[in-house]
């Protein structure tokens, strides 16, 4: 069965106690696109990503990833998930870390692991313990660790947070190279200037998708010059800005 959409989120609700984190959110991503999730801290971006990857089970609604109903363990080997803070084992080397996560995904191919390390330009530090690397390098290791098993979908939760501008530029360059291979990327960010680089954007506010489209169409829709103003305008339009639960 061929699915036109790599990810389908249909009317998903998720509550944590009294917090209504996702409030009937729906979205779809196409193969080979970068879909940006934009929104302030606490908007529900991380919860959404975690629900897509199957770490949270939706209270209602459904999530389909590469044709599999989530949560599903079997489809996970075709996906990659880069968490917000680089989740790595500090006492292990760059190679050991990447080989470990690749191994769990079913990839024990040395060449693919080394290729991923070369992709983020860390070949020289391959055998350094991750704990001895700088923050930016760790972030690159984190990115490389989702690559060797050639996933079709990668979710990146604020991959460029705390990353200097030069490295951020490199990251987006990497992302483009990845989509050129047909990989779908879902990238969350609260940095508005990153939005311009996404193929499509979803504005997330209080657990809802308040607007969706290319950055240009969103700016036009709001009649604003930049994406930040567009976001604020559209949020107000939807009446969710001051609508606290």
């Amino acid at each position: 069965m061929t699915t036109t959409y790599t990810v389908e989120v249909n009317d998903v609700h998720k509550r944590f106690g009294s917090v209504h984190a996702l409030q009937g959110l729906s979205l779809k991503t196409r193969k080979g696109e970068i879909y940006g999730l934009l929104g302030p801290n606490g908007a529900g971006k991380s919860t959404l990503i975690r629900t897509i990857i199957g770490l949270h089970e939706p209270d209602s609604g459904s999530v389909t990833v590469l044709g599999h109903n989530m949560p599903s363990k079997t489809v996970l080997s075709r996906t990659g998930y880069m968490t917000q803070a680089s989740a790595l084992y500090n006492d292990l080397t760059v190679y050991q870390n990447i080989a470990f996560f690749a191994g769990l995904m079913g990839c024990r191919d040395r060449a693919a692991i080394e290729e991923a390390i070369a992709f983020v330009d860390l070949t020289e530090r391959m055998h350094s313990p991750v704990g001895t690397l700088s923050g930016g390098m760790r972030q690159r290791v984190s990115l490389a660790s989702v690559l060797p098993h050639k996933p079709e979908l990668i979710l990146l939760d604020e991959p460029t947070v705390g990353v200097d501008p030069q490295l951020r530029f490199q990251f987006w360059d990497h992302f483009r190279q990845m989509t050129a291979q047909g990989i779908t990327l879902i990238v969350s960010s609260h940095v508005m200037d990153e939005a311009e680089r996404c193929d499509r954007l979803g504005f997330v506010r209080q657990g809802q998708l308040i607007a969706e489209g290319t950055s240009e169409s969103l700016r036009q829709q709001a009649g604003k010059d930049n994406i930040e103003e567009a976001f604020l305008y559209l949020a107000e339009q939807k009446g969710v800005l001051n609508n606290h639960e």
């Binding site: 199957g54 770490l55 363990k73 998930y81 084992y89 995904m105």
Partner: peptide, 14 residues
């Protein structure tokens, strides 16, 4: 604490 458990759960390991 380091979030690696969360990453493990996003892999096929049970």
């Amino acid at each position: 604490m380091n979030g690696t458990l969360e990453r493990l759960q996003a892999t096929p390991i049970r």
